[in-house]
């Protein structure tokens, strides 16, 4: 099985370039995208540059970290008291961004 698969990888790497993007001209296994004719390889600095704001791109990760932290306090509080409290500000000792004490 593995030998067959490696053979496929070798065959893919030898594929001739397509005249237009058809998705079969791979630069590496699992990496087969190529720009369409007259479109850039990279969009940064081109007329299609989305000009992403790094601060905006970071917001999802920051939000997840904050939610996970509040959840950790909820779990900790339920383990301590046996009752669930959603509002973390009502959990004794809660500190935004802080780590709940060890169980």
């Amino acid at each position: 099985m593995k030998l067959i698969a490696l053979g496929i990888v070798a065959a893919m790497s030898l594929a001739a370039p397509a005249l237009a993007y058809d998705g079969t001209n791979c630069r590496a296994p699992g990496n087969c995208w190529e720009p369409k004719p007259d479109y850039p390889e990279r969009v940064e600095g081109s007329e299609y540059d989305p000009q992403h704001d790094p601060a905006e791109l970071s917001k999802q990760g920051e939000s997840l970290a904050v939610m996970d932290n509040r959840n950790a306090w909820r779990v900790w509080h339920m383990a301590q008291t046996g009752s669930f409290e959603y509002d973390v500000t009502k959990i004794p000792g809660y500190e935004e961004g802080g780590t709940p004490p060890a169980q």
């Binding site: 698969a5 990888v9 296994p29 990496n31 990279r42 940064e44 992403h52």
Partner: peptide, 24 residues
């Protein structure tokens, strides 16, 4: 993906994106 390495294996979650576009 060891049985099917032609699907791709490692580092592709970032390498197949330009810059930090994978974050969104």
């Amino acid at each position: 993906n060891e049985p099917n390495p032609h699907y791709g294996q490692f580092n592709l979650g970032t390498d197949t994106w330009e810059g930090d576009a994978w974050k969104i």
